[in-house]
Design a protein around this nucleic acid. Sequence first.
DNA 1: ACCTGAACACCGTTCAAGT
DNA 2: ACCTGAACACCGTTCAAGT
Lengths: 187, 187
Amino acid sequence: MRESTGTRERIKAVALELFTEQGYEKTSLREIAERLNVTKAALYYHFKSKDEIVSSFVEERLDRMDALIAWADEQPSTLATRRELIARYADSMFATEQPSVMRFFEQNQTALKSLAAGQQMRDRMFRLADALARGDESPAAQLRAALSLFAVHSSWFAIRAPRVTDEERRKIALEVADELLARIADG
Amino acid sequence: MRESTGTRERIKAVALELFTEQGYEKTSLREIAERLNVTKAALYYHFKSKDEIVSSFVEERLDRMDALIAWADEQPSTLATRRELIARYADSMFATEQPSVMRFFEQNQTALKSLAAGQQMRDRMFRLADALARGDESPAAQLRAALSLFAVHSSWFAIRAPRVTDEERRKIALEVADELLARIADG
DNA sequence: ACCTGAACACCGTTCAAGT
DNA sequence: ACCTGAACACCGTTCAAGT
């Protein structure tokens, strides 16, 4: 706990930056170590492996998603719930320090598939989609639910019009998501 | 041309299989070489580098997309054109040997970002999205266009209902895509 | 508790040399 | 034309040893 040097936190910060910029596979532990003026081996005192570094800054997001799923399960499966759920999802993605973690996920989708943390994220995405389509098990509903989540994610890069603020991106994403959700039948 | 042994084609086939199964970064040239009973160095006689192997089976798909974009540019920017374009896109993705190449892309999105072939694919996706939103430069239209393309892609994994055929996936994807496209203003 | 130095097996790539 | 053998610098990981 009482880390005197704070090396662990510094590793996390540098790793998040480099993994996002260059990608997980393209970033070597040597690079991270050099930025911190330590040896590669020092990283292994703080983390069991390279992908444990990823897990460390993914955990917070997993917790948020779990809370969201738990909340959704208690609500009636109506359009109002679906709209509220996607809005809360967007909030937790666009809020606080999360944008940098979100950019990391955006950048490293594939690498994450083989990582423990990535599979957990994938699992949560499917459970969120299920929560959005609850009561309507049709294939079309599953696709609409998944696309409404993608709408939130892809608003970051798919909207290339100039001078669009984060707040506007969020608004547009929810507008498009809502249309998709409106076509899912209530439970 | 007149390759006697056909080693080049055998490399492509094995690489596509392994890259799709395990991912590009996780597949070593040693693995590919061993399957073919040649040395790693032999691969370098047929391909300049590891990512040139990828380029070799991506080219056909790039050509298809270029043809599609060229076709779209000649059409009036109406809903009918957008529907026809996305249908043709789905056809070219679901048709012939392409599903395996499509699964490769699905599996390797991130690795592709740093590859020449990947950047070309990304460029074509944006140009397709632009063709779909032509005449409506609003941010919402850009997002809708991108999501309609995603609908085609994600129908492969987002629809998890049992016993859904490829043909049904295609139909559902186009149904959802059409709704998104209907909300884009005509040029 | 925190970190180093040196070693490990493996990676993509190069190149002279063989047929 | 087609391929091998050996070397290159680099990778993630381990571990005994130092403070």
